[in-house]
């Protein structure tokens, strides 16, 4: 089966000499919901820029559904819809005109473009703003406009570069639902985000990029299984002593009624609750200190940074 996206030995060196991508390989299968994560400046946006022809690559190859972006650029571009990180529409154009114009760039006649614009603006809840100049939309509406614009030519591969940045939680969740729907309908989605909860909830496969190198590329499930420890915060009814300890567990009092406990992969919550109960403590609530993917992500990126520091010191 032809991959939705196949990147081989992709490298990008900017004019100043900065190497944003150092020969990455990446494959995304059709129908996947794929997360491309990494810290700021890791190379995510450069990768997306190359796929979408906004950045000239230095070397390597990119194929979209089997179409090389250099030799069959028209066919490749027809397959891609992109939602960039920054707002990049004409501020003076009306919402509906932005969509119809974008469809026109893909050779879609205006009557069909109008139908598609109506369909996606309604789905994204901004149909009533169709005649408003885009500059008058709120931040969340602008994000939804960019998603509608990316979908108006009905691409098979949708690339979203931090689509929910600066969006309130209610809207973010409605956007997740929408993205899940279009993914279930068969569209391949690549997502970059700083909200790791978002990636964990939506994506089936994941690549983590750091300093221009792919440091992890696997399924979300197997990645989460590699998590060696998980940290929980317990709210306790009783007042805790600062030197409170729980043998066999990494334990820290972080407030007079709050206890932070690290649980190793081989330990379980039942045993922990028993120990807390034996210690005369009543747990009123608990939560993860951070999302599981976030813990892994931080570990992976820190490891990569430490390796670089060691290499530099050796040199």
């Amino acid at each position: 089966m032809t991959s939705a996206l196949k990147i081989r030995q992709l490298a990008k060196q900017y004019d100043g000499g900065f190497e944003a991508l150092k020969g990455i390989d990446l494959t995304v299968e059709p129908g996947d919901f794929f997360a491309l994560l990494g810290p700021n400046g890791a190379g995510k946006s450069t990768t997306i820029g190359v796929i979408c022809s906004l950045v000239n690559k230095t070397s390597g190859s990119v194929e979209v559904f089997g179409h090389n972006i250099d030799t069959h650029f028209s066919l490749a571009k027809q397959k891609i819809g992109v939602v960039p990180q920054e707002f990049n529409f004409n501020n003076f154009e009306k919402v509906i005109d932005i969509l119809i114009t974008q469809a026109g760039y893909y050779g879609i006649p205006s009557s069909l473009a109008r139908q598609r614009a109506e369909k996606y603006l309604k789905k994204l809840g901004i149909w009533d703003k169709r005649d408003v100049p885009s500059r008058n939309l709120s931040g969340g509406m602008k994000r939804r406009l960019m998603i509608a614009r990316a979908l108006v030519h009905e691409p098979e591969l949708l690339i979203l570069d931090e689509p929910t940045a600066g969006v309130d939680i209610e809207l973010r969740r409605s956007m997740w639902t929408f993205l899940e729907e279009i993914n279930q309908a068969g569209r391949t989605i690549i997502l970059t985000t700083h909200y790791l909860e978002e990636a964990e909830q939506l994506c089936r496969n994941i690549a983590i990029i750091d300093q221009g190198v792919i440091v992890e590329n696997t399924s979300m499930k197997s990645l989460l299984q590699t998590l060696q420890k998980e940290t929980f915060i317990f709210d306790i009814s009783e007042t805790l002593d600062l030197d409170f300890a729980l043998g066999g567990y990494g334990c820290k009092v972080i407030g007079e009624n709050n206890l932070e406990v690290s649980l190793a992969k081989e330990q379980n919550l039942n045993a922990l609750f028993q120990r807390l109960s034996d210690a005369g403590l009543t747990v009123t609530s608990m939560r993860n200190k951070s999302n599981r993917l976030e813990e892994l992500f931080v570990n992976l990126v820190e490891t990569q940074t430490d390796d670089k520091v060691e290499e530099a010191e050796e040199e």
Binding site: S53, L54, L75, K77, N88, F89, Y105, Y106, G107
Partner: peptide, 12 residues
């Protein structure tokens, strides 16, 4: 305004 990117990402 970066709206030129609308054209650059398209197959035109």
């Amino acid at each position: 305004q970066h709206s030129v990117e609308e054209l650059l990402v398209s197959p035109v």
